[in-house]
């Protein structure tokens, strides 16, 4: 375990160093991703001026779910890029995964350490700025418990999104290619979690409750933290299921991953 962690640290450190080799281009990439991602929120905010509110939430309140989702997704995307099925699928197909199997180290650790994308700092910063903007707006409704719950939510969302990445990566063992449809759950999940989710039709909400339980990671906790009425009429304790559901999902995803690795077979050529 200790050796694994120190190896992981080395893998990450060397990648960070190589990505910082051209600091100007690195800074530009971080800034551009910050500005471009940030623009969407600004655009949404400017649009909201014409309407005042969406689903009964004002900009500061939407900014809470928007910011926390962007922040968590960015963190996940930085650390779990190795499992990004967009690149993992092609890697399996080209035999890159075989190369990892030929090394005497735990395979999960190797995949985790295979890709660390530091430029995601842009998106992380963007999410953080929006979250801080939100907290400035909504601080009146915050209590100590609520403030403490925010980091728990971030961790839960990171686990949640990484589970989706891991599951996505595992499916590519069979498909041998990226499956764009998974984007509905990962990036689509991020999208629906960035709004007060009661605005979506029942069918979409059901998908993001029972197939991918995104609603427990964003909407229910936000209703509690922001003191908003809940038009869905669900029990109050739903607000606190986030850490349990995400931990459960993460374990499930890891099991599926191990199952995939165990049954993985290279191609014949």
């Amino acid at each position: 375990m200790k050796r694994s962690l120190s190896l992981l640290a080395k893998l990450l450190k060397i990648q960070v160093r190589s990505q910082l080799q051209y600091p100007t281009s690195f800074i530009l990439e971080v800034l551009s991703s910050l500005l471009i991602q940030g623009f969407f929120f600004v655009a949404f905010g400017l649009t909201l001026i014409r309407f005042d509110q969406i689903g009964g939430w004002n900009l500061g309140e939407v900014a809470f779910v928007w910011g926390i989702t962007e922040f968590s997704f960015g963190i996940m995307d930085m650390f779990f890029s190795g499992f990004d099925y967009d690149s993992f699928g092609p890697m399996v197909r080209r035999g890159g995964f075989d190369q990892l199997l030929l090394r005497p180290v735990n395979i999960t650790l190797q995949v985790l350490g295979s890709r660390f994308v530091l430029r995601r700092l842009g998106r992380i910063a963007e999410g953080l700025v929006i979250l801080i903007f939100s907290i400035i707006q909504i601080h009146a409704s915050l209590s100590i418990v609520k403030v403490l719950y925010i980091p728990v939510l971030v961790i839960s969302q990171v686990l949640f999104f990484s589970s989706l990445f891991i599951i996505g990566a595992t499916t590519t063992f069979w498909t041998m290619d990226r499956l764009e449809i998974l984007n509905v759950f990962t990036y689509g999940g991020g999208e629906v979690m960035s709004y007060p989710m009661h605005i979506f039709p029942r069918s979409i909400r059901l998908i993001f409750t029972f197939i991918v339980p995104a609603i427990f990671l964003s909407y229910y906790p936000a209703v509690y933290i922001l003191n908003k009425p809940n038009p869905l009429g669900s029990p109050a304790f739903f607000a606190f299921l986030a850490p349990f559901i995400s931990a459960f999902m993460f374990l499930l995803a890891l099991r599926f991953w191990r199952f995939g690795v165990k049954n993985y077979q290279s191609t014949g050529s």
Partner: peptide
Amino acid sequence: FGQRTTLWWDL
């Protein structure tokens, strides 16, 4: 494997 490398592409 002649067609693939075991080395880190960007390093």
